[in-house]
Computed example of a mutant assay.
Amino acid sequence: MAFEDYFEQLIETSKHSFSGWDFSYVNDTGRIDAEPLTWSYGSKALALIRNSSSMLDMGTGGGEFLSMLRPFPQTIYATEAYTPNVPIAKNRLEPLGVKVFEIEDDHHLPFENNFFDLIMNKHEAYSNQEVRRIITEGGTFLTQQVGGVDCHEINDALGLPYNEEFIDWNLAKAASDLEKNGFKILESGEQFPIQRFYDIGALVYYLKAIPWQAPDFDVEKDKQKLYEIHQLIQEKGCFDVKQHRFYIKAKAI
């Protein structure tokens, strides 16, 4: 098979459908891998859920992650801002007793003051003031975030600008903002683990699923740069980039 034909076939695989927040098409097949973090958001979430009576999962995606954290507290809600994910989340979560709300504005959530004793947020935007409004005094806010310098090597390799909107988003800023809005930081951590792409089709699939990484990305426009990354992968076996992750466990005071 010609080298160029193999490249085009890999690009073609990036057209596989993506729904919810399910990367199994490339993760479960080993086409993308990532260095593990020194903490587990899921383990921390499980322990908190077991001691909660009312909880909210912000940015639930298609509900894939939340659905695996049962048993749930008596009162449980989830929000999702990406419209295509909402029916997926409802179909998965509502039979399990989770009420799912589509939201448009992080600063205006459809919940009463002091309503939740646990709010979870994995890789979703949030308003510090609004989270504090709807959480009980003594309640716990657990979040894991994607930092502002996440996977910048992708942008560098493609010759594309960084997303400036998030570039200053890191643990220090997030923790400071929470402390200014009525929270005490109980735990935190920040890391830059390696994420590895084993073929160019997996990289393109990834970029299509998270368009905010490189908003100017276009397969046809950037095909020459993609081909150069493809050549690198063929020579070295993979294309490595650095993720940016941090977590915070905080108590409302």
Score class of each variant (00 low, 15 high):
249 K>S: 12
168 D>I: 10
232 L>W: 13
204 V>F: 08
193 P>N: 04
158 L>F: 05
164 E>D: 12
137 E>N: 14
228 E>S: 15
192 F>E: 08
151 C>T: 13
194 I>G: 01
141 F>K: 09
143 T>K: 06
160 L>G: 01
138 G>D: 04
202 A>C: 05
160 L>W: 02
208 K>T: 08
155 N>T: 09
200 I>L: 05
142 L>N: 00
210 I>M: 12
199 D>S: 04
153 E>C: 02
218 D>N: 15
156 D>M: 11
158 L>Y: 04
188 S>L: 11
159 G>D: 05
162 Y>R: 15
244 H>D: 07
169 W>N: 08
249 K>I: 08
140 T>F: 07
245 R>I: 10
164 E>H: 13
155 N>M: 11
220 E>T: 13
149 V>H: 15
137 E>K: 15
210 I>W: 14
139 G>C: 01
163 N>E: 10
183 F>A: 03
172 A>N: 11
221 K>T: 13
216 D>N: 15
251 K>A: 14
165 E>F: 14
204 V>S: 01
142 L>A: 05
238 C>R: 14
158 L>R: 03
177 D>N: 15
169 W>S: 10
239 F>L: 05
228 E>H: 13
140 T>S: 12
178 L>S: 00
161 P>L: 06
156 D>P: 06
149 V>N: 14
168 D>M: 11
176 S>I: 03
224 Q>P: 00
162 Y>S: 07
170 N>G: 04
180 K>H: 11
182 G>A: 05
215 P>V: 00
237 G>N: 00
249 K>D: 03
249 K>W: 05
202 A>Y: 04
237 G>D: 01
225 K>T: 07
203 L>S: 03
164 E>Y: 11
138 G>T: 10
249 K>L: 13
229 I>A: 01
141 F>H: 10
235 E>Y: 06
231 Q>C: 13
142 L>H: 02
194 I>Y: 10
144 Q>C: 04
211 P>E: 09
220 E>D: 13
227 Y>D: 02
233 I>V: 08
237 G>R: 00
153 E>I: 02
167 I>N: 02
187 E>P: 03
143 T>R: 03
198 Y>F: 13
203 L>Q: 06
159 G>C: 00
186 L>Q: 12
206 Y>Q: 10
145 Q>D: 04
250 A>Y: 02
210 I>A: 12
222 D>R: 04
190 E>S: 11
193 P>T: 00
138 G>W: 04
158 L>C: 08
224 Q>V: 14
